[in-house]
Nucleic acid binder design. Structure first.
Lengths: 151, 151
DNA sequence: ATTGGTGCAAAGGATTTGCAGTCTA
DNA sequence: TAGACTGCAAATCCTTTGCACCAAT
């Protein structure tokens, strides 16, 4: 419980990032050159905890006027994921979701609506992660509760 | 309860199914009309516990001579999944895996090799599945340990 | 005959790629 | 200026669809 509270506190800092200079710092801290397009994408995606597909990011970023191309959105999201700025969530075979919340948490996916939501802290716990072969190391553990609408 | 026990009993037999008539029975029990193509696909996929993509199934089924078309493979795998004969595993954004083991278990996915393996029983446990809204019901809980090769 | 199943090719949608032009450091 | 980054379009890859033909009841 205490752990999850602390994590939430840290997260709440990220989700409050608003100014361009804070975004720039964040990118630089994650070893990402803060180009005009990347900053714009980060402003949209990291503004709050959310799960967006590449296409949604593309739309949001270019809502007012065209700022970023499709190829750059894909490249940038992949880059952000590699650098740990966002988390890729693979639950829908038709597209990848990018989660602006990088702290440890799980997901609940509605197969009827295609909606992805967070499943917070104490709600579901992993007992123990198994020992792995010496050849490999764990990247992460993904837990997805798949639900559908009743009747 | 009785239903699920019966199903489990049948499933434990699945990995040993070899004869065509056993396959036919299995399909019929799962409310699937046993056509020539479906039986062939089931023979290949359900022969043992394995994780195959649609493309792999297509190749395996037509190894000797063309027996089933691509469209039918996709249709059939989707049908099998809906009927509970196989389990869809979504871990690789580029393709869906079909798991011939429908009993409760988790997965370990190597992002470098693209290989998917089972993670058996006691190795990793879910503490408690969270309460859901009245609107939805759980379809399943997927746990994936994502690993990569060292160095 | 009617219903369901199959095959082929075309369509669809997400993501990647090649390359020329542009920006950052 | 050199190396990175971006944009556009074309190309890929997986999966779905439309529709005519075949099969089983």
């Amino acid at each position: 419980m205490f752990d999850s509270e602390r994590v939430n506190t840290m997260e709440s800092m990220e989700s409050n990032i608003k100014t361009k200079s804070q975004i720039v710092d964040l990118l630089v801290n994650h070893d990402v050159t803060p180009t005009q397009q990347r900053v714009k994408i980060a402003e949209v995606l990291l503004a709050r905890h959310q799960h967006l597909s590449a296409d949604q990011v593309l739309d949001d970023v270019n809502r007012e006027r065209a700022v970023v191309s499709k190829a750059t959105v894909y490249n940038t999201l992949g880059l952000f994921a590699r650098k740990g700025l966002v988390r890729e969530v693979i639950v829908d075979p038709s597209k990848v979701f990018y989660d602006s919340n990088t702290s440890d948490h799980h997901h609940i996916f509605n197969v009827d609506t295609g909606k992805l939501e967070d499943l917070h802290g104490g709600m579901l716990q992993i007992g123990s992660v198994p020992a792995l072969s010496d050849q490999v190391e764990t990247v992460g553990v993904d837990v997805v509760v798949r639900v559908r609408n009743k009747n």
